[in-house]
Design a protein around this nucleic acid. Structure first.
Length: 168
DNA sequence: CGCAAGATTGGC
DNA sequence: CCAATCTTGCGT
């Protein structure tokens, strides 16, 4: 039975998608044949060009390009020259939003999970709908999703106050 | 072309 | 508290 989440799930407002990803299963098929499944425990919403905490607020650049595309793709970027952070693009074309995956079961922290998943720049733009190495599978809805301010975006003024972090 | 800062982490 | 490590956006 194929439980892979379909395109429609991602073609919605990031504020709907981000909390619904909590409890869903992130699947990684590694190059050596090993497959691992991880429950998503923490996400954050980054909502388009208006959101000053969102990279897309700087406009359409080579780095943010994929966020302007149709939802259902991967946006990865290297932070502090060390950690690849995983984001899932949401919304219709030109709605430059994405969900940062901040935690999976056993690997809390966006940098730590990126390391576990062995992410690199080759994942930039990968389709979660068609990829044979990373995708998301459905799971029973979670009832106790908590919210808080997003982490590490104090530079973004009023946007830092948004309760756009979701976690178990 | 140079430079400062970064959606982080781990060690001292 | 602070270094690691390198890409990116922006100013000159």
């Amino acid at each position: 039975m194929d439980r892979r989440i379909t395109a429609e799930f991602f073609l919605r407002d990031v504020l709907e998608v981000a909390p619904e990803l909590i409890g869903k299963i992130l699947v990684r098929q590694f190059g050596d044949g090993r497959m691992e499944k991880y429950r998503i425990t923490e996400t954050e919403a980054y909502r388009g060009v208006e959101d000053r905490a969102c990279h897309a607020s700087k406009g359409r650049t080579s780095r943010t390009e994929v966020m302007f595309q149709e939802g259902g793709k991967v946006y990865v970027y290297l932070i502090y020259g060390q950690y690849w952070l995983l984001n899932l693009v949401t919304g219709i074309e030109n709605d430059a939003s994405a969900v940062l995956i901040r935690g999976i079961e056993g690997f809390p922290g966006p940098g730590r999970l990126g390391r576990e998943l062995q992410l690199d720049r080759s994942f930039y733009g990968e389709s979660l709908i068609h990829s044979d190495r990373i995708w998301v599978e459905d799971a029973e809805p979670v009832s106790e999703v908590q919210t808080s301010k997003r982490i590490g975006v104090d530079y973004s003024g009023e946007w830092a106050a948004k309760l756009w972090r979701f976690y178990l």
